[in-house]
Design a protein around this nucleic acid. Sequence first.
DNA 1: TTGAAAGCGATACCAG
DNA 2: CTGGTATCGCTTTCAA
Lengths: 339, 339
Amino acid sequence: MTIRWLARHAGVSVATISRALRHPDRVAPETRERILKLVSRYQFVPDGRAATFSSRRTGLVGLVVPTISNSIYAEFTEAIQNRLQAAGLSLLIANANYSAEIEAGIIRKLIESRVEGVILTGYKRDAALYNLLRHYRIPFVVTWSTSPEPAIPSISFDNYAAATEAVEMLISLGHRRIGLICGVTDINDRAAQRFDAYRSALLRHKIRFEPELVSEQPFEIEVSAEAATRLVTRKNPPTALFCANDIQALGALFACQRLNVRVPEDISLIGFDDLPITRVVNPPLSSVHVPAKLMGQAAADALIDAARNGIPVTGQTVGTELMMRGSTAPAASANTKIR
Amino acid sequence: MTIRWLARHAGVSVATISRALRHPDRVAPETRERILKLVSRYQFVPDGRAATFSSRRTGLVGLVVPTISNSIYAEFTEAIQNRLQAAGLSLLIANANYSAEIEAGIIRKLIESRVEGVILTGYKRDAALYNLLRHYRIPFVVTWSTSPEPAIPSISFDNYAAATEAVEMLISLGHRRIGLICGVTDINDRAAQRFDAYRSALLRHKIRFEPELVSEQPFEIEVSAEAATRLVTRKNPPTALFCANDIQALGALFACQRLNVRVPEDISLIGFDDLPITRVVNPPLSSVHVPAKLMGQAAADALIDAARNGIPVTGQTVGTELMMRGSTAPAASANTKIR
DNA sequence: TTGAAAGCGATACCAG
DNA sequence: CTGGTATCGCTTTCAA
């Protein structure tokens, strides 16, 4: 069942069939009707690869995320997918699983598929990969972190600034012993930037940085709860905890509840991502709002523009907002000065 | 940059280049070295479409899910993706967004891409779609619900049985006023089956079915919390709530906490999906464990087998398990008889 | 408005 | 072991 077969049956040329399918207005109404009737009668679905192959357009965009089981990436992915779908493009999705090797393989495969654009998560990766994409003239955009290199366009928020705001808020509430739970900085540049921001903020305020108050963990709520438990049950526990991720913040919140450590009276919590659930838990969780959906849409739009109209992708910074909720309060012990 | 170009530069034929890339052992070591050096020097990545086109294999599998922002689908998707990736196949993912129309368009597009298999969510859809897939000899499998038609292979658990177990548990704990929060049954056959199970269980135990105790809602935690609030603040509130989804159960739990309705003393809760978070909240949430990962892997494996070895997809039922945790207790008022 | 024919880039069969 | 070549299914000039 091919265009050629249909052409024979309809008594026209393959060119006419192709036109009837793609540019119906360029075919005589009568001819068109006849063809379309055949098409639906035989449930003909043209081979997209062949089409793609002659027209040089695959209609495919690749997305590389470390995982989608983290809600925030799921939301991000979904936003991208919806946008592309609306533009008639398809999403080829791949999990890099926080592994540089897997990622490299994935990117190669995307190039093999001749995707018309690639959305990357995080900027830190072998330069060879960026070069490969450029070499194949495949527009790409980095999300979730901004690359220091201007040649690598990123549509993202500023992890460092956002984390700084959160930590400074805790400091301004009088907290001096502030713990951190974040992702594994070796494999996650977002986590690394947030860690940096935390550390710098402390130093800037002359607060000693204590490595024992920092816990790097994978994003699993049970693991995070355990990490928080360890932090909170120290002899000299922190009075505030910055969790560079809501999953971890939730783990911490539930761990505290279980330990009868009152939030925010005994310990203040701030998360990161602003998942919908933060507004529903008790107390509601303060969190840094990350415009995941917006960021995804902007990235998709940029790539759609690049693919359709050859417009080069330009970087863009989207804003975050610290959402203060019930999980954060002035330090009880300290001389509480809110500025 | 094509195979032909490389052939000229290497002074060999295109056939040899192709072989050097796909079957290195069928090429003289010397020739091979020379070719591979060129390939890496020019960062040549063969065009997968062309390959696909001559070899009749696209290496693509399509997945149609209603959404991925629900964690449980994200986990499912991820399992499939990992499995396919390991088998050298790529996942083309599409959100149907609980819309039959969008889904139909998506399936058409998957056929256009000549995917080698399709994983569907839920069985209820226009028969024409199934026929189209069959017509194109594309193996498919239904997940998340079992089709009553044997011609539609499903790899799934039994929604009805699983929900029945949960509701009967509540009944056996002495509950007689049991509420239900579930998905929108019009567009979600899983929700519909769970609703049916709930209703039948009540009737079977001579408990009056009260429509006012049922709330159909989209899977958003805030919406679910409101729905639960309405149910719990009735003049004559239920003593137990079956939530056909953990998102909704969590919404209910947090709503109860906020209203000072004690769980499980005042109201028992059972969710569905057994998300990791259920083990961490307070009290831990009873839930029906759904083997999302296993189901995804099995579906992926079935399709891999179908694509690779022409083995027809056969249905399979995977088990669920009711995980009883702290959110459920015997009815306080009633004459508590645990059988 | 319609048709003929030249690709698009790799694969694989068949010779040599 | 290597080369020539038909082929996959459709799009797209270019003519008619």
